[in-house]
Simulated scan of single mutants.
Amino acid sequence: MFSLSVNDHVMIAHSLPHEFFGPAQALHGATIAVEVTFTREELDEHRVVLDIGEALALLDEALTPLRYTNLDEHPDFAGRLSTSEAIAEYIGTDLSTSLADRPEIGITVHLRENPRAAVSYTVANRP
């Protein structure tokens, strides 16, 4: 198995309006570090998992709709909690759509909202 990881970050605002989330119920900002790992069993004809420049561009395209946005007002999060897990799923789904013509490439999104906690989402069963 081969892998390529690229990273970036995104600054968002959101609230998690349920008592389960304690003080995070209130509107607050977050800078989220994002790392995406692309995998494949065999290298392509160019002997790469994915071109690094393309991987960076794909990640930037996935993050652009989230940058400096209040996710409480973002149409893709309307009516659902914008937890780190949900944000990772959103990014993974976007990347999966962008790579729909290359289903052999696996995608895992790793988010870190603070130095002590991280979440990951692996896109399952690529078409």
Rank of each mutant, 00 (worst) to 15 (best):
F2Q: 08
F2R: 05
L4Q: 05
S5T: 14
V6D: 03
N7I: 12
D8T: 05
H9G: 10
H9M: 14
H9V: 12
V10F: 03
P17N: 11
E19Q: 10
E19I: 09
G22R: 08
A24V: 07
Q25H: 01
Q25D: 06
A26Q: 15
A26N: 14
A30T: 06
E35Y: 05
V36L: 12
T39L: 07
T39I: 02
R40S: 10
E41L: 06
L43K: 06
D44R: 08
D44M: 12
E45L: 13
H46R: 15
R47A: 10
L50P: 10
A57R: 12
L59R: 02
D60Q: 12
L63C: 00
L66A: 05
R67W: 00
T69Q: 07
F77E: 00
A78K: 10
G79Y: 01
G79E: 00
G79Q: 03
R80D: 04
L81A: 04
T83D: 04
T83R: 07
S84G: 14
A86Y: 05
I87Y: 02
A88Y: 06
A88S: 14
E89K: 14
Y90F: 09
Y90I: 06
G92R: 08
T97A: 14
T97H: 14
T97S: 13
S98I: 00
L99P: 00
A100M: 09
A100C: 06
A100H: 08
D101H: 04
D101I: 08
P103G: 01
P103K: 05
E104K: 01
T108E: 13
E113S: 10
R116I: 13
R116Q: 13
A117V: 07
S120H: 03
V123M: 08
V123Q: 09
A124M: 04
